[in-house]
């Protein structure tokens, strides 16, 4: 399970991205890149600064949902656990959006 971060009531919804949402955005970029994504692609795709990208990639690696390969040109891919997570997430997102809830 990936821990989420509940939204703050003081910030507008449209501008606030929870930690969970950023994790998902990063993993979606990796999935879109046919499970072989370079850091630059993830950085632009998930709309993150370089420092935050490094932080989130490390966190996702420690959760065991992505893995790093390559020595100089690093490439990130989803692990089996990551693929299963994304499959479950799609179902949850589909369920929540049917009721009009955003995740």
């Amino acid at each position: 399970m990936i821990p989420g971060e509940p939204g703050s009531s003081t910030k507008p919804v449209s501008k606030y991205r929870s930690q969970f949402r950023i994790y998902v955005d990063v993993m979606q970029v990796i999935q879109r890149e046919k499970n072989q994504a370079k850091p630059t692609r993830i950085l632009y795709g998930a709309n993150l600064s370089h420092d935050r990208l490094i932080k989130y990639l490390e966190e996702l690696k420690s959760l065991g949902v992505i893995q790093e390969s390559g020595t100089e040109d690093k490439v990130y891919s989803l692990t089996q656990k990551g693929i299963e997570f994304m499959n479950n997430f799609k179902k949850v997102e589909s369920f929540a959006s049917a009721f009009g809830f955003r995740i």
Partner: peptide
Amino acid sequence: YQALKGYRLSKERTLLYL
């Protein structure tokens, strides 16, 4: 049950209310 599964995955409070 489906809403609870969603909450456990995302920690999204609206799913807990659901």
